[in-house]
Amino acid sequence: MTLHRAAGGLRILRYTLPERTIHWLAALTYCYVLLTGLAFYTPHLYWLATLLGGPPTSRFWHPWIGLLFFLAVLWMLRTWIADMRITSVDRAWGRAIDHYIRNEDEALPPVDRFNLGQKYFFWVMLWGGALLLISGAVLWFPERIPWGLRGIRYAAILLHVAAALLTIGAFIIHVYMGTAMVRGGFTSIIRGEVSPAWAKAHHRLWYERVTGR
C-alpha cells in the first residue's frame, strides 16, 4: 500500500517501481541524446562524441535513442496524465511562485502530487520531445524531402535546435531541483518513498488524499 512502517518511521510510497523505471529510462536516454546532440551542436564539444564511442557511432545512435526517449515520455504520459493536469490549485500556487523560489514554502497554497513547476516541466518535455522527433525525422532523412520542398529541411534545423534548447533549460532546472534543492526528492525517485513530513510540506493535498488524514 502507499503507507508502510520502516525502521526510520512511517514511509509513503511516492513512485512505484514502474514509475521509477520509466523515469530513469527517460533520464538516461535523454542524457545520451543531450551529450551526443551537444557534440554536433558546437565544435567546442565535439570531443563528447569521441568519448561516447566515436562521432559516427554517436550519430548512428542519436536518432534511435531519441526515439526511445520519446517513447519513454509517452509511457510517462500514460501513467501520469491524471496527475499532470493543471488545475486552479496550481494556478494559485503559480501566482505565489516567488515564495517557492525564496524557500518561503509556508506561504504557498498546498498542492497535489505535483506542483505547477513539475507539471510544466513534464509538458515541456512531452511537447519538446514531440517537436524534436518530428524535426529530427527530417534531419534523419533529408533526401526524402523533395528539393522543391526544401524549406521544410531549413525549418527543421531551426526547430530541432530551438526545441532542444527549450528542453535543456527545463532539464537544468529539473536536475538542480531533484538533486540539490529539494532534499528528499532524489531518494524518492530512487527508492520510491518519502516521509510523511516531506509529503505534508511539499504536496499536502496529495498527502491528505493518499493517507486519508
Binding site: I101, I168, I172, I173, M181, S195
Partner: peptide
C-alpha cells in the same frame, strides 16, 4: 545554457536547499 547553470548555482548559494524537518 551557461546562464542556466550559473543561475541555478547562484540560486543555491543565495537560498540553499529546501529541507523538511521530519517527524
Amino acid at each position: 545554457m551557461v546562464g542556466g547553470l550559473i543561475g541555478v548555482t547562484m540560486h543555491y548559494l543565495r537560498f540553499g536547499p529546501k529541507q523538511v524537518e521530519d517527524d
